[in-house]
Amino acid sequence: MSLISAGVSDLIATWLDSLRALDDASPATITAYQGDLLGFAAFMGSYHGAAASPATLRGTDLTAMRAWMAHERARGLSARSLARALSAVKSFFGWWAERDGFDPSNVLSTRSPRHRRKLPRPLVEDAAKSLISQVELQAPQDWAAARDVAVVTLLYGCGLRISEALSLTGRDAPLPEMLRVVGKGRKERQVPVLPVARQAVEHYRRLCPQDLTADGPLFRGVRGGALSAGTIQKAVRAARQQLGLPSTATPHALRHSFATHLLNRGGDLRTIQELLGHASLNTTEAYTAVNSARLMDVYRKSHPRA
């Protein structure tokens, strides 16, 4: 017996379509939300002993919500993952209630499970510089080595996400002093480009054997197509292993390092928020927690009375 009715499946599909069209949600986000909602609806079908229908879901009460959350935790879902699933369920119910006019307060008032905030894990400055230098030694071709260095320099020097760096086109080069970046949710921001980053990109362009057209990707793979994130991740993984750095030394850690090192040198949170393209200052404030944790670690190791 199916635990989800066609009506509920159609509702979930319509909501996901609206996320794609209006919120420009990424494919990974859509897939995660779809799994969360289908899992929730299937549980409610099992809970009520019949395929979950729009009518039964509209009548979801706090007891049913707590039963679903307890079931998810019992099958090994972490508090963080459950919080994400609950957020997806709430977003769906909020959209549905606004569309069809019913009271979703039982679902929306469900409290999210507490979980420890995961702090960014940046590299120290010397390690970040060493990692970039070591990346240059991974590719067998000089032009590909220059390409990889240019990409990781943009991650550390400008705080770009790897997807943002790889979305640059030939039209963006030579890079200006202020680069327009399109980030998550199609949100645009301006980031300053350090001379060392501009030089790295120009060095790659001079060596690149591909025809870097204005409309084509700036960073190319060995076969001429767009460079994949996996290629950069592989180069960084090899470089960190050679340097003896931890597994947390990833391309994204270079973005974390950019923010942390700015904060260490007196940068203010609002500016760093704008440079990173964070929608909420709360996200950026995680870097202050990193700073505080390091200060306490130094204090404990250094103070004679500690």
Results as ranks from 00 to 15, higher is better:
121 R>W: 01
101 G>C: 03
275 L>E: 08
152 V>D: 02
2 S>H: 09
89 V>Y: 08
177 E>C: 02
247 S>Y: 01
4 I>E: 09
261 H>E: 10
273 Q>L: 09
40 F>S: 07
151 V>S: 02
126 D>T: 14
215 D>A: 11
186 R>G: 06
185 G>L: 06
99 R>T: 13
98 E>D: 14
72 E>W: 00
141 Q>W: 06
49 G>P: 02
105 S>Q: 13
276 L>N: 07
9 S>P: 01
24 D>W: 08
94 G>N: 09
88 A>V: 12
21 A>F: 01
268 D>H: 14
275 L>V: 05
128 A>E: 13
147 R>V: 06
303 H>C: 11
111 R>E: 14
50 A>S: 10
68 W>K: 08
248 T>S: 15
157 G>C: 09
144 A>D: 02
123 L>C: 12
19 L>F: 09
145 A>R: 13
63 T>L: 11
83 A>P: 00
262 L>W: 10
99 R>N: 02
23 D>K: 10
298 V>A: 14
220 R>H: 03
151 V>F: 03
24 D>P: 00
155 L>E: 12
180 R>P: 00
227 L>K: 03
205 R>G: 01
2 S>F: 00
229 A>R: 15
233 Q>M: 06
268 D>R: 07
62 L>Y: 01
195 P>I: 14
19 L>E: 08
216 G>I: 00
162 I>A: 02
169 T>F: 01
282 N>E: 08
214 A>I: 04
239 A>I: 05
286 A>L: 15
292 S>T: 12
100 D>M: 05
269 L>T: 01
166 L>W: 04
192 P>A: 13
152 V>H: 04
113 P>Y: 11
272 I>G: 00
229 A>D: 13
81 S>Q: 04
7 G>C: 03
204 Y>D: 08
